[in-house]
C-alpha cells in the first residue's frame, strides 16, 4: 500500500498518541492526518459516530472531547492526545445520556437515525453546561446538528422533557 495522505499524496508522519475513549486508554501510533472520527470508527469500531459531511457542517460525527461537543471529522486523532472521548457506545452508565435516549424514543424524535447519536451527545454537553436551558438555548445548541427528517420539533421537545425531569 502506498504511503499517502488523503491530501496531495504526501506521506503523513506518524505519532504515538494515548487517547482515553469511553474510559479506556488506547495507545496507538497514528498518521498525523487521521481524523478522530476515522480513528474511532476504523481503529476502535465505534460506529455510532456517523460521517455525514467531513467538514464540520452537519454534526453527525459529534463526540464529547473532554466533555465538549466536538465534530470528530475536523479534529485529527493526534489533537486528542491526552484527552478523553465519549461516544454513545460508552454511555451506558451515563444517567443524563440514558435519559436523553429514552426521551428521544418517547417524544418521537427519531426517524432515520443518522443524526441521532450526534444530537444526543450535543444535548448531553449542553445540559452538563446548563441544567436549565431555554427552548431558544436548545435550538441554538442544535443548530450545528442537521436533521432532514424531523423538522427538529420533537428533538427539541425531547431535550425539554429531560430538562423538566431535572436530571
Amino acid at each position: 500500500m502506498p504511503e499517502a495522505s488523503l491530501w496531495g499524496e504526501k506521506a503523513a508522519t506518524k505519532r504515538r498518541v494515548t487517547i482515553t475513549v469511553n474510559e479506556i486508554p488506547y495507545t496507538y501510533t497514528l498518521p498525523v492526518d487521521l481524523r478522530l472520527a476515522d480513528f474511532l470508527r476504523e481503529c476502535l469500531n465505534l460506529k455510532s459516530v456517523k460521517l455525514g459531511c467531513g467538514a464540520g457542517d452537519c454534526g453527525a460525527c459529534t463526540v464529547l472531547l473532554d466533555g465538549r461537543a466536538t465534530p470528530s471529522c475536523i479534529v485529527m486523532a493526534v489533537e486528542a492526545h491526552g484527552k478523553s472521548v465519549l461516544t454513545l457506545e460508552g454511555a451506558e452508565r451515563d444517567r443524563l445520556i440514558r435519559a436523553l435516549q429514552v426521551a428521544f424514543i418517547e417524544k418521537g424524535a427519531v426517524q432515520c437515525g443518522f443524526c441521532t447519536s450526534g444530537m444526543i451527545l450535543t444535548l448531553a454537553a449542553l445540559l452538563r453546561e446548563n441544567r436549565r436551558p431555554t427552548k431558544e438555548d436548545i435550538k441554538r445548541a442544535l443548530a450545528g446538528n442537521l436533521c432532514r427528517c424531523t423538522g427538529y420539533q420533537r428533538i427539541i421537545n425531547a431535550a425539554l422533557a429531560v430538562v423538566s425531569d431535572g436530571l
Binding site: 495522505s5 491530501w7 496531495g8 499524496e9 504526501k10 506521506a11 503523513a12 508522519t13 505519532r15 498525523v32 492526518d33 485529527m76 493526534v78 489533537e79 492526545h81
Partner: peptide, 16 residues
C-alpha cells in the same frame, strides 16, 4: 483531480 501531486514530500505535525 484533487490536490496537485507532490510526491516525496511528507506531511508533518508538531505540537510545541
Amino acid at each position: 483531480v484533487g490536490p496537485a501531486a507532490c510526491q516525496g514530500d511528507s506531511f508533518g505535525y508538531e505540537a510545541p
